[in-house]
Write a protein that binds this DNA or RNA. Structure first.
Lengths: 249, 249
DNA sequence: AAAATTAATGCGTTATTCTGCACTTTTTAA
DNA sequence: TTAAAAAGTGCAGAATAACGCATTAATTTT
């Protein structure tokens, strides 16, 4: 029996039992206790099990993997993303901001879509790196770790030098009077610059972001060429925006 | 029997069995064990199978999620990473290149470690974004999608302006005579610049990268202040490097 | 098609990994 | 604190793998 098989055996066994005794398992598999101990140690070091005196337990909550991006309300975001697809056309130069709504959108972009995309979001860049025909340019700078986007003067500088056809802008809060607002100052500055750099601005948002205000203003509604939400444009929550002359999809 | 046929044969066989023994398959096909081992190694490096001591297993293809970074030979890379930890000290300015060896290393860095880290690798940036006390700066540019690193003039420009205490350099190939070499031209240029920008250069590599040459030279051995491998420094494979005056850990 | 080039293969040798045993150290329980 | 159980350590033997090299097969060029 190979080491690898034993390790698999051990991990499988935890689906039946809570605890595995060193000696019991040695007898069960007819191998020495030393081998079991070494196995337990290895699995313990990999963080898969919890080795204690005389036995081992399964580790329940696996260490939170950074790469597991949790998308809340993903169904809504997929609806938004699907509507947004109609704004894409081949060969565009695109600025893609951050956020999980934009990430959901990016997952829906056809694999062979061809364009140039600027982004400052790590998860979005990783997602888009799957697309062979997208020329992907990451805007470097200091990382705002929580949102996994770059911020600061370096980002502004790059943005000030480019000209894009369209910008897909993630939204923190959208309000009829306040327009688009952000929680963080730095991100608000970056988004302002993105808008300046883009011919068209499309805001992507789920309905829960609508009618809220945050500290820092990004732009007024009049600067948004389109707003895409998960709601039906006739829905009452949206009506006031439509009445104000906004293109809501 | 051609190599391709054997590879095909192996992959097909996994539809029937869980595990393929090296020796059994050699007998079955009436070819030498070496050939089977070489086949297993190749398929392993392609990420198609999992080679272990004495046999190989099928890699169960998970849902194709970009965010699942597959680290081959992860155990070896963890050994390298653990040794590399001793080169860290608080407050350093660090340049971290890309690659899964460096990614494994980053996973091992204590959560409260404090430093300034420059990187041009998306996965590494995401990993390090978990560390609250690391000032993380992403070097922007055009994305080399396969390796998920930025390349090009923008990267060079940023690197030419900074001065770091230490650089942890991932390795494509390391050879006694050729030194450090890379497959891609662009990455070789970036790595050269990283070396220029750093006071100390530490190369991180697994033993399978040793004694290979690739197209583009990065630097000679004399420019490496330390080389960290998964092998014991006394190991014969390393001996010639130690004899050449290199610090091997 | 023959020659030249390149890649693949097998063999002998050397290196590495795995495992169990004997022995020592640490931990647990009385 | 002592005895018993479990764990760690170092070592040896066996199995597996890697390496260098000579040879053969496959591919490309002439």
């Amino acid at each position: 029996m190979l080491k690898r098989e034993r390790h698999q055996y051990i991990m499988n066994k935890f689906q039946e039992v809570e605890k595995i005794n060193t000696i019991d398992l040695a007898q069960e598999l007819k191998i020495s206790e030393d081998t079991i101990r070494r196995d337990f140690n290895e699995l313990n070091n990999k963080g898969l099990i919890n080795k204690v005196y005389g036995a081992a337990f399964l580790v329940k909550d696996k260490p939170n993997n950074v790469f597991d991006i949790k998308i809340i309300n993903e169904d809504r975001k997929i609806i938004v993303g699907q509507k947004a697809l109609s704004f894409l056309s081949e060969g565009q130069v695109i600025i893609m901001s951050g956020g999980t709504t934009n990430l959901s959108f990016c997952k829906l972009i056809p694999i062979d879509f061809s364009a140039t995309i600027y982004t400052y979001s790590l998860p979005i860049a990783m997602q888009l790196s799957q697309h062979p025909n997208i020329e992907l340019i990451f805007i470097g700078g200091k990382l705002q770790k929580k949102a996994m986007v770059t911020i600061g003067i370096d980002v502004i500088q790059v943005l000030s030098k480019i000209k894009a056809d369209i910008c897909f802008l993630g939204v923190s809060s959208l309000d009829l009077n306040q327009g688009l607002t952000e929680m963080g100052y730095e991100v608000s500055v970056v988004k302002k610059e993105m808008i300046k750099a883009s011919g068209k601005v499309v805001a992507l948002t789920t309905s829960d972001k609508i009618n809220g205000k945050m500290m820092h203003k990004v732009c007024g509604l009049e600067q948004l060429h389109a707003v895409i939400t998960d709601l039906n444009p006739n829905s009452p929550k949206i009506k006031s925006f439509v009445d104000a002359g906004l293109n809501v999809f």
